[in-house]
Simulated assay, not measured.
Amino acid sequence: MCALGEVVHLWQRDVRDDERCGCGDRFSACEFWKRVGKSAFDGWENVDVDRVHRLREAVERTRHIPRLASASTASAEVREYASFYSKVYAAAAEVSGAQVVIDSSKHSALAHVLRWAGDIDLRVVHVVRDARGVAYSWTKKVARPESDGTDEMTRYSPGRSALLWNAHNAAFGLLARRGVPVRRIRYEEFLADPRAGLIRLADFAGVPLHPEDLDFLRPEHADLRPGHSAAGNPMRFTVGRLPLRHDDAWVRALPSSQRRLVGAVCGPMLRAYGYPINVASETP
């Protein structure tokens, strides 16, 4: 398998802004991505980033999901936009020799676009976390190291986070009803038994694992090698030991009023995913 990071951000942050790859090199200096660009487009300089952005505005927004999901055929713009991703995936598979490439983009609208790409065997892993934990995470101030500390990760209010949590999770459910293979796994479930979780997900991807494939995984940590994530969470730069722990700081740190707000907005889906509606604060 080959993890590419959040490819949805590749066009601006990497091709145009030349931010750092997960391996530490600038995108333009990373041998892996240079080879991918050569194979996919005969060089990244041949990618019309402005065109990609225009297509994204036209077809890959959350507001477009109802149209994408209900359409019986794809528009020329949808197919053209999906083709940029198809070329990157195919080139990455060729360069890496991997059977499966993993795009960890979180945009549900992109998944709805990609279902129209006939040359992609699309399988979606739908990772769900308690909406209150997600809301707390989006309030934190986190620097983006790939921009040399000059920029920060996006931040949202708990109310906006709750609305986005509902919209994106519902969109992945709709994708499954449109015939796309979708496998849901809860964040909390995965942290409880990462080894079993990876085995199930690899099987879903069509790549059965052998015991030695998981030698990097220990009960409380994972030993990570350098990767080539184009964009994503700052932890993509982690090399070596990565602790595996259930982050439940939100139970103590998210104010009770905000916790109740998110719980009320997301209540039906929290219940559907097996989360408790009422969570008592551990704050004295």
Rank of each mutant, 00 (worst) to 15 (best):
Gly43Thr: 12
Gly43Ala: 14
Gly43Lys: 09
Trp44Val: 06
Trp44Ser: 06
Glu45Tyr: 05
Glu45Gly: 13
Glu45Met: 08
Glu45Ile: 11
Glu45Pro: 01
Glu45Trp: 08
Asn46Asp: 13
Asn46Leu: 11
Asn46Ser: 12
Asn46Gln: 11
Val47Glu: 04
Val47Phe: 10
Val47Cys: 00
Val47Gly: 06
Asp48Arg: 05
Asp48Val: 06
Asp48Ser: 06
Val49Phe: 11
Val49Ser: 03
Asp50Val: 03
Asp50Asn: 06
Asp50Ile: 06
Arg51Leu: 13
Arg51Ser: 06
Arg51Trp: 07
Val52Pro: 03
Val52Cys: 04
Val52Arg: 04
Val52Lys: 03
His53Cys: 10
His53Ser: 12
His53Tyr: 05
His53Met: 09
Arg54Cys: 10
Arg54Gln: 08
Arg54Pro: 02
Leu55Asn: 05
Leu55Pro: 06
Leu55Val: 07
Arg56Phe: 07
Arg56Leu: 04
Arg56Ile: 05
Arg56Gly: 10
Glu57Ile: 12
Val59Trp: 11
Val59Cys: 10
Val59Pro: 01
Glu60Val: 15
Glu60Ala: 15
Glu60Asp: 14
Glu60Phe: 01
Arg61Tyr: 03
Arg61Gln: 13
Arg61Trp: 01
Arg61Asn: 04
Arg61Met: 08
Arg61Glu: 10
Arg61Gly: 07
Thr62Val: 04
Thr62Gly: 04
Thr62Glu: 14
Arg63Lys: 14
Arg63Gln: 15
Arg63Pro: 00
His64Gln: 08
His64Asn: 08
His64Met: 11
His64Ala: 15
Ile65Glu: 01
Ile65Tyr: 03
Ile65Thr: 09
Ile65Met: 03
Pro66Tyr: 00
Pro66Gln: 12
Pro66Trp: 04
Pro66Asp: 09
Arg67Asp: 14
Arg67Phe: 03
Arg67Thr: 10
Leu68Tyr: 11
Leu68Cys: 09
Leu68Glu: 04
Ala69Thr: 03
Ala69Trp: 07
Ser70Thr: 14
Ser70Phe: 11
Ser70Pro: 02
Ala71Trp: 02
Ala71Asp: 10
Ala71Ile: 09
Ala71Glu: 05
Ala71Cys: 09
Ala71Gly: 08
Ser72Ile: 01
Ser72Glu: 15
Ser72Thr: 15
